[in-house]
Simulated assay, not measured.
Amino acid sequence: MKNSVSAFAFVILLGLGPAQAQKKVFPQTPGMVSYTYRNSFQKNVAATLDTIKAFGITDMEFSNLFGKTAADLRRLLDERGMKCSSFGVGYPDLQNKLAEVGQNAKTLGAEFVRVAWIPHQGAFTLDMAKKTVDDFNRFGKQLKDEYGLTFCYHNHGYEFEKYEDGTLFDYIIKNTDPKYVSYELDILWTVFPGQDPVALLKKYPNRFKLMHLKDLRKGVVGNLSGGTPVENDVALGTGQIDLPAVLQAAQKAGVQHYYIEDESPSIAIQVPQSIAYLKNLKK
């Protein structure tokens, strides 16, 4: 009996067996996308930040200033010990007022400037992808050279049109300069058009700096439209995405910031569920 107990203790000391099984898949605290609380932010920015901070979340990705100046928003963040690591903007902002974008991002304290939609009509085409590559390389170089910011593109599903032995998203990644263009992987908008986020993370290590954590309702069949009802956003771990596999691949691939994004009208219930899921996820 003594020998078997000693052997078990030795296994535990080596970090094997039960001890290893308790290792957390996601040890860090996630960030939050402002879009999750868009309705609340429109009414009261300070109170909404308090709600998010109460979850222990201090890392924000803002894609709207909600009627504030960047300096006003930065002050509200500083007062709460919170930060904005990524600033999301529209494509026309990058085309027409990139200097303002850069200044606002710097004022907010962001490291990244992110765009999540390429304006287009109908199916996304190779010609659109070629123009996108030119734009992204230009946006990224200017943001890096003049403001020290990293430009990121957030996929939205329509870019996965077939092209050669891959997709137009592959074409965009391969033809954008890694010095100036990085990516934010939205895992719902990867799975919805039928792609595998784990495979993408392995295929392009160190290109994805940011990630939107979300889950897609079970049974939903996707397409290349880039759109689905917001009710199809469900609490993490209750949908069809293999989140443990995605998170482990993301950590190996160099993702730096993870933001919960829940577009549904059920965030009061789902956000706490998602946070608890991440906290309790074990290997």
Rank of each mutant, 00 (worst) to 15 (best):
162 K>W: 09
162 K>T: 15
162 K>M: 14
162 K>Q: 14
163 Y>D: 02
164 E>D: 12
165 D>H: 14
165 D>N: 12
165 D>Q: 10
165 D>E: 09
166 G>A: 11
169 F>M: 09
169 F>Q: 08
170 D>V: 03
172 I>E: 12
174 K>A: 10
174 K>I: 09
175 N>G: 05
175 N>C: 11
175 N>Y: 12
175 N>L: 08
176 T>S: 13
176 T>M: 13
178 P>E: 07
180 Y>L: 00
180 Y>N: 07
180 Y>H: 05
181 V>C: 10
181 V>H: 02
182 S>C: 13
182 S>A: 13
183 Y>F: 15
184 E>N: 01
185 L>I: 05
186 D>C: 03
186 D>I: 02
186 D>F: 00
187 I>G: 02
187 I>N: 00
187 I>M: 02
188 L>R: 07
188 L>V: 11
188 L>A: 10
189 W>T: 01
191 V>K: 05
191 V>T: 08
193 P>A: 05
194 G>R: 03
195 Q>A: 03
195 Q>T: 03
195 Q>H: 07
195 Q>E: 15
196 D>I: 10
197 P>G: 00
198 V>T: 13
199 A>V: 14
199 A>Y: 12
199 A>H: 13
199 A>G: 15
199 A>E: 14
200 L>Q: 05
200 L>M: 07
200 L>R: 04
200 L>C: 02
200 L>K: 06
200 L>H: 00
